[in-house]
Amino acid sequence: MNRYLPLAITALAILALATLFLVIAPGMQISAQGPSQGLKPYTEAEARGRAVYVSMGCLYCHSQQPRSLAQAPDAERGWGRASVAGDYAYDDPHQLGTMRTGPDLMDIGDRLPSQAWQLTHLYQPRAIASWSIMPAYPYLFEHKDKAGPDDVVVKLPAQYAPKSGVIVAKQDALDLVTYLQGMKRQYAPPKDGLRDNGYALIAEKQRDATDATTASN
């Protein structure tokens, strides 16, 4: 290649093509679907809690996208049905995640609805599970001599409790728990929801092939 302009134009055209296929076309398809029926926008407290989730970087260990049973036993673990594009209509930034150092959280509100459990777990995960490697978030809490009338006191085993006084949740911790409690999709899964059905299609093909072999025998 000896000329710069054709090189530059072709290079940018290829990037435009990739943008068309990876961003624009799927974007149109996804927005045509709209939110799943029954999905509610976040309440103010949930939105604040979600901001804490984002700011602490929970994303880097927790996904929010249960896979289909054709691919993995996520549903059997109680992580909920396979998610579809419409389930995320109100998410900005999206927090789908790419890592499961910890479990998927898409339906954590269904699985662990207790505020007390969540607060203890955020203050010190090892107070609940000795094997856990999740960070503790003590700065979302306050050490007080005595709890005030509106304070939510964190229940702690003696090993992790302060020598005197109590640990109470700050607003950030309460909001984060509200967000987690709200993470449950109790509406009926939408028909024709958009998701990667590649595994189901492969399983179907394999079933057909097996059926065909059985039939021919």
Partner: peptide, 21 residues
């Protein structure tokens, strides 16, 4: 330029898009 969606395999995105990547 078109491989990126392999980060969302098995996720809530259109099947054709994942297959493309």
């Amino acid at each position: 330029s078109q491989v990126g969606i392999h980060h969302l395999i098995g996720g809530p995105v259109p099947t054709w898009l994942v297959t493309l990547s």
